[in-house]
Amino acid sequence: MIYLLEDTINGILMGSIYGLTALGLTIIFGVLKVINFAHGSLLMVGMYVAFWAATLSGMNPYVALIVVVPIMYAFGYLLQNTLIKPIFKAEKQVREPITVIIVTTGVWYILDNLCLLIFGPQYRALQNNPLRGKMLEIGGMMLSVPKLWGFVAAMITAGAVYWFFQKTRMGRAIRATSLDREAASLMGINQYKVYNMAFGIGTATAGIAGVALIPFFNVYPSVGVLFDMKGYIIVVLGGLGSIWGAMLGGIIIGLIESVCPQFMTATWTEAIVYALFLAVLFIKPSGLFGVKYDW
C-alpha cells in the first residue's frame, strides 16, 4: 500500500513537471490559436542553455534561471517576430492558420539537428550537480528532491503566469487579443506585439521547465520529441489554452505513467496514454477546462 502511495506522489511530482513543459504550448495556443510544433525543441534549447549556464559558470542549476529566462524570452519573441508574424499578416482572415503548424515543424527540424551538429548526439548529465540522486525519506517513502523542486517550480510558474494574465494590464490586453483580435486591435492593442510577447512567455516557461529538468534528466538533441508528444496530449486533455488544465493534464499523465506499471507491463502505459488522448478528442475535444469555442 505504501508503494502505491509512493508511486502516486512521485507521479504527481513528475506530472507537474510534464505540465510545466506543456505550459508554453497552452499559452501559445490560447493566444495565437496555433499549435507550436517546435515547442519540444524550444524545451530542448532551454535545457541546453540551462546545462551550459550551470556547467560553465559552476553555479547551482536553479540559479541558472536568471540567465535562462531572459534568453528564452528573447529567443521566442524573435522567433515569432521573424517567422510566424509574416504568416499571420498574409492570412489575416484565417482564424487558425495551418501554415504555422508547418513552419514551426520546420523550426523543430532545424533546431534539433543544429544542436545535433553543434553538441553531438551524446547524452549529457550535469556534472557539478548538488542534487544528483538526492532522496527525501518521509514515512518510509523515497521522494526525489529535484522532482520536488520541479513541482514547486511548476506551481509557482503556473501561478505567476495566471496572475499575469488575470491581473496585469498587459495580461488583460493579451487575453482580449485571444478572444477577438479585430476588436482588440480597435481598442488600440498592437496585435503582433501581443503575439510576440505571448510566444516569448511560452518559450520562457519552456526554459523554466528545462531548468527544472536538468538536475535529474539527461540533455540530448532529440529530447524535445519525448516531451512534445506528451505536451500535445496534456494540453488537449486539460483543454487547449487553459493554464491549470495543463497542470492537471500533466499530473494525470504522470499518474498513469507511475501507477499503471504496478498492474501491467510498463511499455503498455504509453498505449494507455494514447488511447486516453484519442478518447478525450472524440468525447470531449475541449478537454477538462477548455472553452468549447476553441475546437
Binding site: K33, E96, T267, L281
Partner: peptide, 27 residues
C-alpha cells in the same frame, strides 16, 4: 470522428493515431 474537428485538432488526432498504432504493434 476526426473530420468534424478543426485543423490543429485533426493534425494532433492523426499523430496520436499513428503513434498509438506503433506503440500497439511494439507491445
Amino acid at each position: 470522428p476526426t473530420f468534424k474537428m478543426r485543423g490543429a485538432y485533426f493534425a494532433l488526432a492523426t499523430i496520436a493515431f499513428g503513434e498509438g498504432i506503433r506503440v500497439m504493434v511494439e507491445n
